[in-house]
Amino acid sequence: MTETESEVMLAQESQRHTYLQALGVQSWLPRGALPYAAPSAPWVEAFTWPPTERFEQWGDAFDDTPAEAAATEQQAAPVTPAVNAPRGVSRALESLQGIFAPEGTSSQKVPALAQTPPVSSETTSPVSALDMSYQPERVAPLQNPLAERYPEPQFSLVLIKLGELLIVDSLPPQGRQSFSPAHIRFVSALARSLGVQGYEINPILHHWPAFVGSALNQGPDEALRSVRRQLGNLLKSQEIKRVLLLGEASAQWILEQPEPLDSLRGLRFSLRAGVAAVSSHSVTALLRIPELKAELWADLQPLLAART
């Protein structure tokens, strides 16, 4: 890298730090060699912050010429940016010197930088009118009937897509039990009883809470949003026509109903147009209590009717 290229890189880095400082962001750049890291460019060792007067001569190196500015305005879409970025290092520093001047120091006492004629534009506001009042977008509260019953929800769902059939099973949340080979064999036999076969079973596990940590919002609204996202991604396939919900957690969080499983079993619900859903006992319960299979078969009748 030549000396001129190094100075250009220093000026560009200074401009980037100016923008970041204006936004209240403090950035860091390694000044020494790090173990097992790739070597830094030669200009890194010479970089200093805050900028010194050696950048003034390069202040206008990044200013757009009038011809370039006109060409850019003709090619760009007519969109007015929320924050108008300053043109060049010199004008960026000039607009910010009043902000970063030491306390009790008038901005007029700061050495004047190279003056650049302002660019007149009806849609471009002055550089000094930087909008520093950004507020993060608030997430709208949900109409969540499960929030009162489950203020700290814990559940584990298993989603299995088999052609036009989607099976969502509930696992015991304690210890995050895995979907065992016995579970897979039972689901395969259950799918055949519904007239679906020839598909490979690839279970998708959906645990909640997703992470461990009190600093993260993992309440009922976030839990419902996560289930909606997972279900929405699967229902993007227009192939799915029937949904079987096994276990209380599956029925409640997919149907968004706070009632216990016994109140939801065997009823036909519509997740969306052309997609029927029924609920019954979980695979874990069916494996432990074989007598429940008779109730499962009775609960499946609305899905069998939906197939014809």
Rank of each mutant, 00 (worst) to 15 (best):
Q12A: 15
S14F: 00
S14Q: 10
R16P: 00
R16W: 12
H17A: 14
L20T: 13
L23E: 08
G24F: 09
Q26L: 13
L29G: 06
P35G: 08
A37L: 12
E45G: 12
F47E: 09
F47C: 10
R54S: 14
E56Y: 07
Q57I: 09
Q57F: 08
W58R: 10
T65V: 00
T65P: 00
Q75I: 06
Q75H: 09
Q75W: 07
A76S: 05
A77R: 11
T80L: 12
N84I: 08
A85L: 13
V89Y: 11
S90D: 11
I99D: 15
A101M: 05
E103A: 14
Q108D: 15
L113N: 11
A114N: 12
T116H: 15
T116Q: 14
P117R: 11
P117S: 10
S125V: 14
V127E: 14
S128C: 04
A129V: 03
M132S: 12
Q135E: 13
Q135N: 11
Q135D: 11
P136H: 10
R138Y: 05
A140W: 05
A147T: 08
E148P: 00
Y150M: 09
E152Q: 02
Q154T: 00
Q154S: 08
K161W: 06
L165W: 09
L166E: 11
V168E: 01
V168A: 03
S170V: 03
P173I: 02
G175L: 03
G175K: 01
S180T: 15
P181M: 09
H183I: 06
I184F: 03
I184Q: 14
S193L: 08
L194E: 11
V196L: 07
G198E: 10
N202M: 13
I204L: 11
H206S: 10
A210C: 00
A215K: 06
L216E: 02
G219H: 04
P220G: 01
A223M: 05
L224C: 11
L224E: 13
R229C: 10
Q230D: 11
L231P: 07
N233F: 07
E239P: 12
K241L: 07
L244H: 08
L246M: 15
L246I: 04
E248T: 03
L255S: 03
L255M: 08
Q257Y: 08
L261P: 05
G266A: 02
L267R: 15
L267S: 09
L267K: 15
F269P: 02
R272S: 13
A276C: 07
A277E: 03
V278Q: 06
S279E: 00
V283H: 06
V283W: 05
L286N: 06
L286T: 05
E291L: 10
L292E: 01
L292H: 02
A294Q: 10
A294W: 04
E295F: 02
L296F: 02
A306W: 05
